[in-house]
């Protein structure tokens, strides 16, 4: 039971990253590699603030807000210097590696013995002291609910709709008077903000921040998103923004359960990235293979 709840909590915390990547990858149609750098940036700033005695919740908020600047940089590289999306993100990601080491002063920063939002929460509600795994679960689910509701409302506003339209048909959005460059930058900043928030949460939950904590995480986020999408197809859900957001979170939880199972079956932890990449490739490719087969049948 304990293990199940902690797996769930892991999924919830990592789903914040999945939501961030969902915004660029699915809504904006922009393969944004900034996410990996943003995750570590959020973690670094958050760890720095906590070790300097700032309140953990406040640290989390500040680090997320500052991380949105990473999205701004990628956005400017793409819209002003006309560099391709994937390359803009990679450039920001590479630059962030050095910046993160500058921020922490070294390659990693331990939060050992410091207060985190998790320990604060346990102290505030003494019942949780006996069941510490519950605090991560409660915090994870609260944050996910807040994010899903806020994003769902945001993407129904005039600006939110314009961002979705920019990802769907940029030419049309410009013909309808939309400043598509600005819309891209806003979406990239929100995405980075969420990745930074995820970084801060992960750092606090694992008790340290590391400059390499972002490496390979984009594959985890993508895996979560495509697992979530296969839920949507399976349950024949309408492709609404709300169900897509919920499914991204469910996908993230599901990914953690799968990882837990394969590790228990004795998979070498260092093979996890290969496994994740494999699963993501299969799930991304399956719908396309189906389409090709159907087209051949109809031809």
């Amino acid at each position: 039971m304990q293990i199940l709840i902690s797996t769930f909590s892991q999924g919830l915390i990592w789903s914040v990253l999945a939501l961030g990547v969902f915004i660029t990858f699915r809504i904006l149609n922009f393969a944004d590699m900034t996410a990996e750098g943003s995750l570590a940036l959020g973690g670094s700033i958050c760890a720095l603030l906590i070790t300097n005695g700032v309140n953990p919740l406040l640290s989390l908020i500040i680090s997320a807000l500052l991380t949105s600047l990473a999205g701004l940089i990628t956005g400017l590289l793409h819209t002003k210097l006309k560099i391709q999306p994937i390359l803009s993100g990679i450039l920001t990601m590479i630059a962030l590696y050095s910046i993160n080491i500058r921020i922490m002063g070294k390659a990693n920063l331990s939060l050992l013995g410091k207060n985190t939002i998790f320990s604060d929460f346990e102290n505030a509600l003494p019942i949780l002291k006996e069941n510490p795994t519950f605090s991560a679960f409660a915090i994870g689910i609260t944050i996910c609910l807040i994010l899903i509701l806020t994003l769902n409302i945001f993407f129904k506003t005039q600006i939110g709709l314009a961002i979705r339209a920019t990802g769907d048909n940029e030419q049309m959005m410009r013909a309808q008077g939309g400043n598509t460059n600005l819309k891209k930058i806003i979406a990239l900043m929100i995405s980075s903000l969420l990745c930074g928030l995820a970084g801060g949460l992960i750092a606090q939950s694992q008790g340290y921040s590391d400059v390499n904590m972002g490496t390979g995480t984009i594959a985890i986020a993508l895996a979560s998103i495509v697992i979530g999408e296969s839920f949507m197809t399976f349950f024949k859900m309408k492709n609404k923004i709300l169900s897509a957001l919920i499914c991204a979170v469910l996908g993230s939880i599901c990914y953690r359960i799968i990882i837990f199972i394969v590790l228990n079956f004795g998979m070498n932890p260092s093979d996890l990235k290969l496994f994740t990449a494999f699963v993501t490739a299969i799930l991304l490719g399956l719908p396309n293979i189906k389409k090709i087969k159907e087209a051949k049948k109809n031809a």
Binding site: F154, K156, T157, Q158, I159, G160, L161, A162, R164, A165, M173, Q176, G177, G178
Partner: peptide, 18 residues
């Protein structure tokens, strides 16, 4: 949603519902 985008062609887009 498509039509609502077009209704705002000559206006500034805000955080009001689309």
């Amino acid at each position: 949603e498509n039509l609502s985008l077009a209704m705002l062609r000559n206006k500034k887009r805000t955080l009001h519902f689309g």
